[in-house]
């Protein structure tokens, strides 16, 4: 995650309160998603950005997580996200993020 986005989220976490902030990711590369989630939970693993050594402990989700689908109106989901169902292993992303969320909690 680039430094600019790290500092934006850090500022929002301070402004709205860490416990009140949820971040939803949209990248489809699983490793990339894990790095972003780690950055927002435990701090920047590359130690390059403003979140280096900062444990925000945010709640990080991915927009394609299967168990989120029930919150989204089906026609909106189909039209905007349906294309990803065929090609993204959304369950793998959910399992991975869910594990990270549980560890953080």
């Amino acid at each position: 995650m680039d430094a600019e986005n790290q500092s934006t989220i850090m500022r929002l976490a301070e402004e709205y309160g860490r416990e009140n902030l949820m971040v939803f990711l949209g990248a489809t590369d699983v490793e990339g998603v894990e790095i972003s989630a780690e950055t927002l939970i435990a701090g920047d693993p590359s130690f390059a950005g403003p979140l280096a050594g900062v444990q925000l402990g945010l709640q990080v989700y991915h927009i394609l997580e299967p168990s989120l689908k029930r919150y989204i109106p089906p026609e909106v989901y189909q039209e905007r996200l349906g294309i990803f169902e065929v090609i993204v292993d959304a369950q793998r992303i959910e399992d991975s993020l869910s594990k990270m969320r549980n560890q953080a909690a």
Binding site: L12, N20, M22, V23, L25, I63, Y77, R80, F84
Partner: peptide
Amino acid sequence: GKYVVALGERDGVPGPVIAEVL
């Protein structure tokens, strides 16, 4: 009671789409 940040990606789900869906 939550505040949501959409952090999308160009070749995945872009920010505006995450925001719209949420």
